[in-house]
């Protein structure tokens, strides 16, 4: 009977279920690298967990398929690993996606050009006051966010239709928001963006979805605080001081 943590083998089950936090995890992976039979065991246990996963299947919303397939078409793939193979699959825990950055600049540049051409008028919100800025200032802010070394792109379906895309930079404490194919709202209603976090819920401005083409934005939202999420709700066209309806889109800004 093995008790306590002296025998690393006992961790195989917890490891296979991602239930071994650091530093146990790294310790066990070092052990795996030296132990072929352990790798074999972890493989078998992972197959068992995949069977557990199979029992949870649900029917995903149809919109998810479109969003994912579309995003894949715009996402650069990783080359095959050429270095020594890892001991067992240890998919990298990438918080950032370096492969996306050069690409997203292109994607966003395309989106911005499309908006400029299609809409002619672009409403830009600077910070919580929502004051209109000059075009140069906006372009400068957009460029600053897109070129930030920590820029991250996230795309999410909007539950009422369409897709929202955000490029954010923690360093610049700002994000650029665009959306495509949003459902056209009845007169008197408008989409409103929010920053929600420990710093409170703040309006980040009204989204101008006034029906020019399929893209809206770009909006620059500044004043990000730690732990913020960006959300979008449907509000009276004049805006609301607080969200009055459930969010149709929410993105955690990690």
């Amino acid at each position: 009977m093995r008790l306590g943590g002296s025998d690393p083998h006992t961790l195989a089950g917890a490891y296979a279920m991602d239930a071994a936090p650091e530093p146990d995890r790294s310790r066990f992976e070092r052990h795996l690298a030296r132990c072929e039979s352990c790798r074999q065991e972890v493989r078998g246990l992972r197959e068992a967990t995949a069977a557990l996963a199979g029992a949870t299947a649900v029917r995903p919303p149809a919109a998810l398929r479109d969003v994912v397939l579309h995003a894949a078409g715009q996402t650069r793939q990783l080359p095959p690993a050429v270095a020594a193979a890892p001991a067992a699959w240890a998919p990298a825990r990438h918080r950032r996606r370096p492969g996306w950055r050069p690409r997203l600049a292109i994607v966003l540049a395309g989106a911005l050009a499309a908006v400029a051409v299609a809409a002619g008028v672009v409403v830009v919100t600077f910070g919580v006051q929502g004051r209109l800025g000059q075009a140069q200032h906006r372009d400068h802010m957009v460029a600053t966010v897109l070129s930030a070394s920590d820029a991250t792109m996230m795309s999410r379906p909007v539950s009422t239709g369409g897709t929202a895309t955000v490029v954010m930079s923690h360093r610049e404490r700002a994000l650029v928001f665009t959306a495509a194919d949003l459902r056209v709202l009845p007169t008197g209603e408008s989409y409103e963006l929010w920053l929600i976090g420990p710093a409170g819920t703040r309006s980040a401005g009204m989204v101008d979805g006034s029906g020019h083409g399929r893209m809206v934005g770009p909006m620059v939202v500044s004043g990000l605080a730690a732990g913020d999420s960006v959300g979008m709700t449907v509000e009276p066209a004049s805006g609301s001081p607080r969200p009055t309806s459930p969010p149709v889109m929410l993105i955690g800004l990690r």
């Binding site: 006992t10 961790l11 089950g13 917890a14 239930a19 246990l45 967990t49």
Partner: peptide, 25 residues
């Protein structure tokens, strides 16, 4: 229950599941 016990039960439980399900790496 004790941490060591849980670790052991997780491993034993998964091994039994693996064998019951007949899955193979």
């Amino acid at each position: 229950v004790a941490i060591g016990t849980v670790k052991t039960r997780m491993r034993d439980g998964l091994i039994r599941l693996r064998d019951c399900l007949g899955v193979d790496p």
